[in-house]
Each structure stands twice: as C-alpha cells, then as structure tokens.
Design a protein around this nucleic acid. Structure first.
Lengths: 359, 359
DNA sequence: TTGAAAGCGCTAACAC
DNA sequence: GTGTTAGCGCTTTCAA
C-alpha cells in the first residue's frame, strides 16, 4: 500500500534502503553492508559499483537499523541545567567537540537544575542506547538523589553505556561511574588567598545556592583560606541563596543602601554575579578597585569586557567536557569500574583587585 | 553465548527486552507494546501486571527498535556554527525547549561556520531519521552551497523529515524548506536611524564577515538608514572582515592611534564587538557616550553589565528556535511546501548613546 | 570474495 | 481485550 504519492517514477517510493542499492549494483545486501562499514575485504570492482549505486540513489544507512543490529548508537548525551549560561555551555561544547572527534553525535537536554527531571532524562536516554551520558554541573545532593543515580549508573553500565558526572562529586563509592572534576575548592581557596595576601580581611562571599555542591565547595575553599590566614570568620559576610545575578545584585544594593560597606573585597560566586556586583557598587558610588576589590569565578568572556576587567578563577571548561567523553569511551583496561580525574584551576589576574589601603 | 559475566542471577544477562516483560507479566509482546504506547485499550488488571513487570525488570523500550518499526525517531537536530556564542546558543536553547515540549530529543552539532561541513552533517543527520534539522545563523552564500542545500531539502522531505533554516535566507524558491527569519536589516535600520536621529552623521560600522548573509543584511539596513536621512555614505566608515571581537578591537585601536576619531558613533556588528569597542575607546581616552556613542546588536547578557550599558537591538532568539521546531513539526495543512515567517526585532535603549553635541 | 539467512527489539495489521 | 506474526533495515555468522 502506497504511503506517499507514487505518481511518477515508481522506482522511488521512499528513501532508498540497502536492498535498493544491492539490486542496482547487482550484489547482495551483505556485500553492500561490507563496503559501507569497510570492515571486510571486498573486490575493488564490486566496491566501485556499490559506491556508484549509493551515489545514484542518494542512499544513506539507517542509523536505527544499524544500532538495532548490534552496534551501539554512536551518540553521547549531555545533560545541562540550562543551555545558555557560560559554564554549562562551554563544558557542553567540549563534550560536543570530543564526541565529534570520536565519530559520535551529541544529544543535549536541559534539566533546569531539577534533580528529578535529571533522573527522568537519564531514563529516557537509556532508551537511546547512548554510549555515555554526561551530567554537567553541581546539583542539590540528597540521599534519594544519590540512590537514584547509583541505580542508573548500574543500569547504564549493564547496557554497555556509561554515566559520567562532570563538575560534581561522585554519587557513591564503587559505582560504575566516571567522575571528571575541577578543583573547585582549590580555586576558591586561591581566590580568597589572593585577596587576603593583598591585605583584605573582610571579604564578602556572595551568590550561589547553599544546597548546591558547587557552592558548598567554593564556600569551603573560602573558609579554609580565611582560617589559614588566622582570620576569624564572620558569618555575616556570607550571602547565599541562589545563583541568579539579580539576587546578588539586589542583596548587595540593599546592604550598600544600609550604610558604607563593612567589607573591603568581594568574592563572587561567578563572573556574572561579579559583573552585576560591579554595577551595584558603581551605582552606590563605590569605586572598584579603589574602595572595594572584586574577584569572580569561571573566567567567562564577560570578565574581560566589564570595567574594570575582572580578576577571576579559570576553569578548564572545554577540557572537562572533552575528558568526560574520552574517559567514558576508552575505559578498557579491564578493571576500571570507577574512573576519577580532577583538573586544576588557576587565578587570572586582571584589574579588579588592589591591595587594601590601611586606614 | 554469554557476552557478559553471567555469574549470579542468570535471569539478567543483558538489558531487558519487551519479550522479557511479556514473559514475566504472562502476556504477549503485543500487549506490552500496547500498554507502553498507550494507543490502544488494555484491561486495567493486565496493564497493572505489565507495569509491574516493567518496574521489576528496569525495562525501557529500545528507541532504535521503535524508530525502525515505523515511527519516526522523535528527535530534532540543530546545527550551529559554534556552541558558545550567545546568538547560536540562545536559538539552540529555544530549539531544545520546544523539542522537549513536543516530546522530542535534541541533537546538536557544530559546523565551525564551514558550509561544506554543514552539508556533510546534514547528510549524517539524514541517517538518523530526525524529524527536522534546523540550520542556525548566517552563512557564506554561494551557488554551490544553495544547490547542495536544495538537494538535501528534497532528500529530507522525501524521507519525511524537514529542513529548517533559521536566521538565514531560503536556499531557493519552491523548496520543501521552512525558513524562520528575524528582521535583521530592519534592526540595523532602526539602530542606525536612532543614531542619526540623535544627530550623528558619521557612523562607523564595525565587524562581521562581508560574505556572510547576516553581515550583508545588517550593512544593508545601515546603508538604507543613512540614505533615508539624505546623508552621503562614506565607504571609509565601514570596517568589515570577520566576526571576531579581537579583529574589531585591533582595527579600532589602529584607527584611534592614527588620530582622533573621524566618527561620532559606532554601530557594532554585535554586542561582544561593541563591548570590545568600549574597551578600545576607553583605552584611547575616549569617553562613551560623551565623545562617541556606541550601539550593539543581539542584546546579549553582557550588554547590561558593561559600562556604559549598551543600547542594542534585541532579537527574539529563543522564539526563533521554538518557532523553527513548531513549524517543522506542524506543517500539515496539505499544501505548505515552503513555510516562511519573519519575527521582529526592536531597539533596547540603555546608556551608550547620547545626542551629538555640535561643535 | 560473495551470498543466504538469522536475528536485533519493536509496532501494527490481522485473527480470535 | 489479547495473541500471532510479518516486517522495519541492517549486520553478521555460516556456507559456498
């Protein structure tokens, strides 16, 4: 029964299949398959004829049929909180790059930061038989969440796939999971230490969801640095809530409206928040870095364009994504159930920090 | 033959299939299929038993088998020049959003702006039997390129898929293509007119690849506005080459080093270039907007954080992406071979433009 | 070097 | 309301 118009040219009802090619080239489908996959010797003359038929028919293999017939699907999936913020974005870019380099396609989905949705999406991706699913960025880490992920990790593993968490702690010990971290706390430690070394003692930490693993680690680095300098921590200098720049902006404005700053430096949760802090400070008549120093995190492209250019912490975003794919795809070596790498971070010095003037 | 360790629990050699579920629930595979797809009545009791078996076995359908068996693959593909620049990024985000809303997965690939690679990628995507492939952003438009795209459009169409071009002209008339544009030239016209209305007569256009359709259109709007104001165009006020911010930055620095600016306003190809122009001007001791006004394009998030905040042209990025998917998926209505919509753009007034002081 | 044929896991007629 | 079965398009033994 015709499913499409077959008015003219009855020989092309629908997309060509391997059988059409075989017929036209006067060979069997097996032969066509062999020249297409190139994993088996075929006579040069035959190969040429087949290739011509392929050309003539505009034939492309059906990836689903191929995947079904045994091979994997040759795709990597990456799950982001959102598509547009630079952090996720750049990691995803790395994933896509490496996927391409390894001859894979790349699926992308967003979770909106919702752990439940993340779990559901991994479930969906399992249907796709992807080679790996990469979870990017911090998460609100609860026991139930870990349990879910542990289950999914095993399920994916038993289907020959791989769970990778990128920029977040492992969901548990002895799980078939690849974790690719960056030295988040270390970066925060370095940033805070830099400020301290410039004479700052009252450093405002601003931004981030306190339940989020990323915030937890940055706060940890911040606190460790302060302690290492023998400075007593003032809980009043930590403003957390969520990662929205407008939140930080509003909080900062409020605080500055209430009186002169009771801090000489700001360590912002990320560069966007740092950039908005710059705006808030400027609007409040406070000069950066003369009155207050500011340091960001992530080294987003914005950091170079705001005024003054932001001193910040650089994360190897792209490399995180690439490494995630690399590791997931080449985890042979027999016994490597859980792989774990941690990439370094480093400070980038620009113009938003200045030594504190004693007064 | 065992392909994996089957030490314990011999009942779980590999991922469960529909047959396993059927066996466990004591029904036929057809019944399982029916409760899973939900497109056919099944007795409540049976459904419950099946669902239990599904749960017990951690079963998920094999998307490839499903796609093969006739249904489409339920995925949308989007092709970007790159992953990280805000324009592509936000359109892609819209695509992903709408794809999710329409119960589809989303594949992403990057072309690096290379038309050949783009063509090759569409070819690959054809293998995937995607519901649609969305091409985002401008392109260097040559006859060969159009020819390729025309061919691919027909091929995709005959396979029940759809080519969508987003933010770029159609590759030809009467092709089975969906084109979703934004009023690019109109935005440039508005931006330039705004500058002209503020008394500026010598407006520097900076950035963009002149062979690129996006640049072509923006330049067109710029010229039309100038002509409409009866101002004679000075070719020396157009600096094009490529879309890299560092290019524009270097060119501007060079020009400013050679002498005082011979323009009173800048119309930058996009906000990032505008932001770098701000830096170049500041470094050259020129005040914005006192000495020179600057206007950008795209309304990137950066535009609000730089100093002074950028007046710019807003594009409905997300909406472009969403509309692309919507249109591609719902093009029933019998005769709608080529769909075409154009979304509007509008100016966003901020602090980087000021009336020109006559002197 | 090539062909025949058995699936891969699922859906959708078609029977009952 | 449920079961049987014929494919979907491809890869891959197994023979020749």
């Amino acid at each position: 029964m015709a499913r499409r118009s077959e008015t003219d040219d009855a020989s092309t009802p629908r997309a060509a299949t391997i059988r059409d090619v075989a017929t036209r080239a006067g060979v069997s489908v097996a032969t066509v398959s062999r020249v297409l996959t190139g994993n088996y010797p075929v006579a040069a003359a035959t190969r040429t004829r087949v290739l011509r038929a392929v050309r003539d028919l505009d034939y492309v293999v059906n990836a689903h049929a191929r995947a079904l017939a045994g091979n994997r699907s040759k795709t990597i999936a990456v799950l982001l909180s959102n598509f547009t913020s630079p952090f996720y974005n750049r990691v995803a870019s790395g994933v896509e790059q490496q996927a391409t380099a390894e001859d894979r396609l790349c699926m992308v989905s967003t979770t909106g930061g919702d752990p439940e949705r993340e779990v559901k999406l991994v479930e969906t991706l399992r249907e796709q038989n992807v080679d790996a699913v990469v979870l990017v960025g911090g998460v609100v880490d609860t026991p139930e969440y870990r349990e879910h992920m542990a289950r999914l990790a095993r399920l994916l593993d038993s289907a020959g796939s791989r769970l990778v968490v990128c920029g977040r702690p492992s969901p548990g010990e002895n799980l078939p999971v690849t974790v690719v971290e960056y030295d988040n706390a270390g970066g925060a430690f370095a940033a805070t230490s830099h400020l301290l070394s410039q004479g700052h003692r009252r450093i405002l930490f601003i931004g981030g969801d306190p339940a989020n693993t990323t915030t937890r680690d940055r706060l940890d680095g911040y606190r460790r640095a302060i302690a290492a300098y023998g400075v007593e921590e003032d809980p009043g200098l930590v403003i957390v809530g969520n990662q929205l720049p407008q939140f930080a902006y509003a909080e900062l404005k409020k605080r500055l409206a209430a009186g002169p700053p009771d801090f000489t430096a700001i360590f912002a949760w990320d560069d966007h928040i740092a950039a908005r802090s710059l705006v808030a400070l400027r609007e409040s008549g406070i000069s950066v870095p003369d009155d207050v120093s500011v340091i960001g995190y992530n080294d987003e492209r914005e950091a170079q364009d705001v005024f003054p250019a932001l001193t910040t912490v650089s994360i190897p975003h792209m490399e995180l994504g690439r490494e995630a794919v690399r590791l997931a795809l080449h985890r042979d070596g027999a016994a490597a159930p859980n792989q774990h790498v941690r990439l370094g971070t480093h400070i980038v010095l620009r113009d938003s920090v200045r030594p504190r003037i004693n007064r």
